[in-house]
Amino acid sequence: MQELIRQRRRAGFVGRSDERAAFRRNLDLAPEDERHRFLFHVHGNAGVGKAFLVRELEQVAREKGAFTAYVDKSVGSVPEAMSEVSRQLGAQGCRFKELERLLATHRERRREARSGKAALRQ
């Protein structure tokens, strides 16, 4: 039922056809092709459907076999964003063991720094 709802919602998506077509064409280009773009910048006024468009592009990419990750302004820091990207890609079968190790080290060092500051205040 959820899949049917998702399909109907996607079928009702209106507008931004040029952006979707450009994105699809880009996915057909080899990364070595100088026309291939690695970054698509989505911008616009609040409420115009940017998040919906990005989710649509994410679905197109997944259909083409690409790994995808999505973070938004709710992420508080760069390490937090990297952790979320790693988590999402890991769920798709693409693990970044070294990144995960470095992020764990970063979290541990931050904890140590915080506990050191707390000890200094006492």
Score class of each variant (00 low, 15 high):
Met1Pro: 10
Glu3Asn: 12
Arg9Ile: 06
Arg10Tyr: 06
Arg10Thr: 09
Ala11Asp: 09
Gly12Ile: 06
Gly12Val: 05
Phe13Gly: 08
Val14Thr: 09
Val14Ala: 13
Ser17Gly: 08
Ser17Leu: 10
Glu19His: 02
Arg20His: 00
Arg20Ala: 14
Ala21Pro: 01
Ala21Gln: 14
Ala21Ser: 14
Phe23Ala: 08
Phe23Cys: 08
Asn26Pro: 05
Asp28Arg: 09
Leu29Gly: 12
Glu32Gln: 09
Asp33Tyr: 02
Glu34Val: 13
Arg35Ala: 15
His36Asp: 04
His41Tyr: 11
His41Val: 14
Gly44Ile: 00
Asn45Lys: 08
Ala46Gly: 12
Gly47Ile: 04
Lys50Gly: 06
Val54Glu: 05
Arg55Ala: 14
Glu58Val: 13
Glu58Gln: 14
Gln59Cys: 14
Gln59Arg: 13
Ala61Arg: 05
Lys64Thr: 10
Lys64Arg: 15
Lys64Phe: 09
Phe67Arg: 05
Ala69His: 00
Tyr70Gly: 10
Tyr70His: 11
Val71Met: 00
Asp72Gln: 01
Lys73Val: 11
Ser77Gln: 00
Ser77Lys: 03
Ala81Lys: 00
Met82Asn: 04
Val85Phe: 00
Arg87Asn: 03
Gln88Asn: 03
Leu89Phe: 00
Gln92Thr: 05
Gln92Gly: 07
Gly93Gln: 00
Cys94His: 11
Cys94Val: 05
Arg95Ile: 06
Glu98Gly: 01
Leu99Tyr: 01
Leu99Ala: 06
Leu99Gly: 02
Glu100Ala: 12
Glu100Ile: 00
Arg101Glu: 13
Leu103Ile: 03
Ala104Glu: 11
Thr105Pro: 02
Arg107Trp: 04
Glu108Gln: 13
Arg114Ser: 10
Ser115Phe: 07
Gly116Asn: 14
Lys117Asp: 15
Leu120Tyr: 04
Gln122Cys: 14
